[in-house]
Every structure is written in C-alpha cells, then in structure tokens.
Simulated scan of single mutants.
Amino acid sequence: MSEEVQPVTQFLEDSFVYSCSFKDQRGYDQFVPHHVLAFQFSGETRVQYQNGKLVLRKNQLLLVQKNQLAKSLKFPAETEAYKSISVILSDDVLRQYAINNAIYESRPYTEEKIILLKPDALMKSYFQSLLSYIEESENISKKLAVIKTNEAIALLLHLSPSLKSFLFDFSEPHKIDLEKFMLQNYHYNVSIEEFAKLTGRSLASFKRDFSQVFKTSPRKWLQEKRLTQAYHLIQDKKQKPTEIYLELGFENLSHFYTSFKQKFGVTPATIQEFI
C-alpha cells in the first residue's frame, strides 16, 4: 500500500467489516444491534460508549455487547495504515451454534458491555486468515462466512469459557429510566426506533412515555437539546462549530448551520465572531 490509497471499509456477507486507511477517520455513531468481535492489526481505535472510553491498540481484541451506543475514531500509526477486522456475531448465528453444540445458558449477562481481551496464538492466526481472504479476494461466500463466524465463536470460548453467558444471553433490553437515558445519550446520531429499543420499549410505548416525561416529541426534543448544547459550547466554552457538530449528533455541517440559524436567528459563525 502507499499513502495514495483511499480509505477502505468493506462489509462482507453481513458477517465481517474490514477497515483500512492512512488518514484519521471518525467512525459513524452506531447503534450496535449484534455482538462484535474486533481485532486491531495496526493503528488504534478510540471508542466512546455509554459507560466510558477505551483505546484498542495493535494486536488487541475487543468484544462489544449488542444493544448499545458507540462512537469511534480511527488513527493510523506513523509508519502503518489503520487496519482492523470485525466479526459480527448475530443472534441467529449464536442460537444455531448453541443448538449445534448443546449449549444451554439461562443466566442473564450483567457485567461489562465492552471487554478488552488478549488474543492467544489461535485467535491471531484466525484473524490473519480472515485478512488473507479479504485482501486477496473480492468476496467471501455465504457458506465460508458461516464457517469462519462459527470458528470465531469457538475460539472465543476457548480463550475465555466464562464468555458463554455474554454470547448466549438472548434476552431483550429491559425497560429502563427513559429520562436519565436520553439526557445521557441525546448526542448519538441514531434513529428514534433504536432509542426505543435501547430503553426496552416498543416504538409506540417509547413515544408515549417520552411525551409524558418531556412534554414534546422525541425528534423535537433531540433537535432542541442538541442546538442548546451547541450554543453553550460555542459561546461559553469557546469551541468551534466544526469541532462539535458531529459530537452532538448532527449528520453534516450544513444541516447543523441551517438548524442553528432557524432556532437562534444567527449562524454559529456569527456567535463565534463576537466571542
């Protein structure tokens, strides 16, 4: 590879995500619907999630629990591209694995939602084999994707048998305090449907409860909350609009400027000029 190579993110058979870049990149705000197993070949990934922050470095392994929110920043090393592969561990695949291997797990998982693991030689070899498939082929067949995903599950359980309750807990998110959750997580750019799921509610129940708590609709509240926080960060904290709009859940700078002017009658840049 050379520095002329453009950033690459490939999704293969809904089972693997391959990322490679020589440039710093901001990942998408994510609702994580499935467990994810990620290996860092080079560079580092800085992850912000609901309960904290962490850094995934070269040759480290990260296991992420389903049904949570996350933001990521990708940084190449000085002499190497950013390179990582993630394996998507969906409920369907895990249920079938449990059936095939007579695994019966009834305990709900209540511990850490994101776990840094030290990969053994077997796990490193596994990810190296995936890298070869992805970099030397344009595709991975569905049959091969199933085989390689099942291999990842087996290697995880070999590495840490206690992860059984993490992997095979198929319970749905329970109903939680909606007001507290939204005040902590309004800055994630995810859909109303995903916010509903994360609070343990159907979409209709979420909208009804939201109206009772905040006296307005979710979309209006999110817009108001994000814009009010943006005004505070620009005027009181002296931050630049370009530094904050993504962190507050706006899709792009243009949308942020338009929404800001509609609410406050001036652009973010105008406020910045008078600081």
Results as ranks from 00 to 15, higher is better:
residue 94 L to H: 04
residue 77 A to K: 02
residue 100 N to G: 12
residue 248 L to I: 07
residue 12 L to W: 03
residue 232 H to G: 03
residue 85 I to M: 01
residue 46 R to I: 15
residue 173 P to S: 10
residue 229 Q to H: 12
residue 124 K to Y: 02
residue 253 L to S: 11
residue 200 G to Y: 01
residue 152 A to Q: 11
residue 155 L to N: 06
residue 232 H to P: 00
residue 13 E to Q: 15
residue 177 D to F: 06
residue 211 S to Q: 14
residue 110 T to N: 14
residue 157 L to R: 03
residue 253 L to M: 14
residue 258 T to W: 02
residue 242 T to V: 11
residue 193 E to P: 01
residue 90 S to A: 10
residue 194 E to L: 03
residue 13 E to C: 06
residue 211 S to L: 12
residue 35 H to G: 04
residue 250 F to R: 02
residue 206 F to V: 04
residue 32 V to M: 09
residue 97 Y to S: 09
residue 230 A to N: 04
residue 36 V to R: 11
residue 131 L to Q: 05
residue 249 G to L: 05
residue 205 S to L: 08
residue 242 T to G: 03
residue 239 Q to I: 08
residue 104 Y to H: 14
residue 156 L to N: 01
residue 134 I to K: 01
residue 27 G to A: 09
residue 71 K to M: 11
residue 265 G to Y: 09
residue 37 L to G: 03
residue 200 G to H: 00
residue 104 Y to R: 13
residue 112 E to A: 15
residue 148 K to G: 03
residue 224 E to L: 10
residue 108 P to E: 07
residue 5 V to G: 00
residue 8 V to Y: 02
residue 109 Y to G: 10
residue 130 L to P: 07
residue 267 T to K: 13
residue 145 A to F: 08
residue 5 V to Y: 05
residue 211 S to Y: 11
residue 197 K to L: 15
residue 169 D to G: 02
residue 5 V to I: 07
residue 12 L to F: 11
residue 27 G to E: 01
residue 208 R to T: 15
residue 196 A to W: 02
residue 261 K to W: 06
residue 208 R to M: 13
residue 236 D to N: 14
residue 174 H to T: 15
residue 149 T to G: 01
residue 91 D to P: 00
residue 29 D to M: 01
residue 54 L to S: 06
residue 106 S to H: 13
residue 82 Y to I: 08
residue 108 P to W: 06
residue 44 E to A: 07
residue 109 Y to A: 10
residue 255 H to P: 00
residue 84 S to K: 06
residue 91 D to A: 05
residue 89 L to R: 03
residue 197 K to Q: 13
residue 42 S to I: 08
residue 54 L to C: 05
residue 96 Q to T: 14
residue 20 C to E: 12
residue 50 Q to P: 00
residue 275 I to V: 12
residue 147 I to Q: 15
residue 150 N to L: 09
residue 175 K to V: 13
residue 264 F to D: 09
residue 245 Y to N: 05
residue 251 E to P: 01
residue 268 P to E: 04
residue 71 K to D: 01
residue 194 E to A: 04
residue 53 K to W: 10
residue 98 A to D: 06
residue 33 P to T: 10
residue 52 G to Q: 08
residue 5 V to D: 13
residue 186 Y to R: 09
residue 223 Q to M: 14
residue 125 S to A: 13
residue 66 K to Y: 04
residue 268 P to H: 00
residue 20 C to G: 00
residue 12 L to Q: 06
residue 102 A to V: 14
residue 60 Q to T: 12
residue 127 F to E: 02
residue 218 P to R: 00
residue 70 A to G: 08
residue 217 S to M: 12
residue 20 C to I: 06
residue 4 E to M: 10
residue 202 S to D: 08
residue 24 D to P: 07
residue 243 E to D: 15
residue 206 F to H: 03
residue 264 F to H: 07
residue 206 F to N: 02
residue 106 S to A: 12
residue 80 E to D: 15
residue 270 T to Y: 14
residue 65 Q to G: 10
residue 112 E to Y: 11
residue 69 L to M: 15
residue 89 L to P: 03
residue 242 T to A: 14
residue 141 S to D: 13
residue 94 L to S: 04
residue 275 I to E: 12
residue 51 N to A: 11
residue 170 F to R: 04
residue 213 V to W: 07
residue 127 F to Y: 05
